[in-house]
Simulated assay, not measured.
Amino acid sequence: MTDLLRLEGVHTNIGRYHILQGVDCVVPEGQTTMLLGRNGAGKTTTLRTIMGLWPASRGTITLGGRRIEAMATPDIARLGVGYVPETMAVFSDLTVKENLILAARDGEMDAGRLDWIFGFFPALRKFWLSRAGSLSGGQKQMLSIARAVIEPRQLLLIDEPTKGLAPAIIGALIDCFAEIKRSGATILLVEQNFHVAQQIGDSVLVMDNGMIVHRGAMAELAADVPLQERLLGLSLEAHQ
């Protein structure tokens, strides 16, 4: 198995706060790796640091054998990295169509790719010419994910995609992520819904206090209630 992404001794400081304190981890190519941890553990900071939105103060980040920790965010995106932030960050004054055009290479959307996206998120077709700001929270999340996958990506960084969503929409997201993985993409996904994590995760990284404190198979963590309670403060069963 090849490691697509590798972090070694990564530290990130935000102002006077030392958030990441030596993150060491690998993300295997072609798998969905869950990044779990209590609130404030450093999960979002890890994704933002990989994406270059917050610079690493120390350590190395390697994507496909190429060091990226000093690269600008647009250059990292051009290497085939998509990012879905927790805030969704859609352009509210633009239509659904315009949001996707901005995310497409050279502003040209592939019709087949677009139909593939509509298969998971039919609401985007329905509201194609509507302003993104008028969409519901779940529809905005669909649009945020659609923007990240409008072009094939080798790596997707996704931050809490199911937060606050209805079960039917969560089901569509699970199907979408499974299909993305089957297409050959690698996913690093922060998720607080442990039922979702158990369903789609191949491997798992658990963070605490800005460091990785556990690495392993998602199925093994899902089967070990005492380990869940020690690492996360509660069992996965409590979130199902």
Rank of each mutant, 00 (worst) to 15 (best):
M1T: 09
M1K: 06
L4Y: 00
L7A: 14
E8S: 15
E8T: 14
E8D: 13
V10E: 00
V10L: 04
G15C: 13
G15D: 15
H18G: 10
L20G: 05
L20A: 10
V23A: 13
D24I: 10
D24L: 13
G30R: 01
G30C: 02
T33A: 08
M34H: 03
G42W: 01
T44E: 11
T49V: 12
M51S: 01
A56M: 10
A56V: 08
R58W: 07
R58S: 13
T60K: 15
T62E: 14
T62A: 08
T62P: 00
T62Y: 03
G64E: 03
G65V: 00
R66F: 05
I68Q: 04
I76L: 02
R78Q: 15
R78K: 15
G82H: 03
G82P: 05
Y83H: 10
P85V: 01
P85C: 02
E86K: 00
M88F: 11
M88S: 09
A89P: 03
D93E: 15
V96Y: 07
V96L: 11
E98K: 14
N99I: 01
L100F: 11
L102H: 13
A104V: 09
A104C: 12
D106Q: 13
D106R: 13
G107K: 11
E108M: 06
D110M: 12
A111G: 09
G112P: 05
D115C: 01
F118R: 07
F121H: 01
F121E: 01
P122A: 13
P122W: 14
A123T: 07
A123H: 02
F127P: 05
L129V: 09
R131H: 14
G133T: 09
G138Q: 07
Q139T: 04
K140G: 04
Q141H: 12
V149M: 13
P152S: 07
P152H: 05
Q154M: 10
Q154P: 01
L155C: 05
L155G: 01
L155N: 02
L157E: 08
T162E: 09
K163D: 13
K163E: 15
L165V: 06
I169N: 08
G171W: 09
F177Q: 04
E179W: 03
I180V: 14
R182T: 12
G184S: 07
Q192D: 11
F194V: 04
A197S: 06
A197T: 02
Q198R: 06
Q198H: 00
G201K: 00
D202S: 10
L205P: 08
L205D: 07
M207P: 02
N209F: 13
I212Q: 03
V213I: 15
G216E: 00
A217R: 14
A217T: 09
M218E: 00
E220K: 14
E220C: 09
D224A: 06
V225E: 14
Q228C: 10
L231I: 11
L232E: 04
G233C: 10
L234Q: 08
A238F: 02
H239N: 08
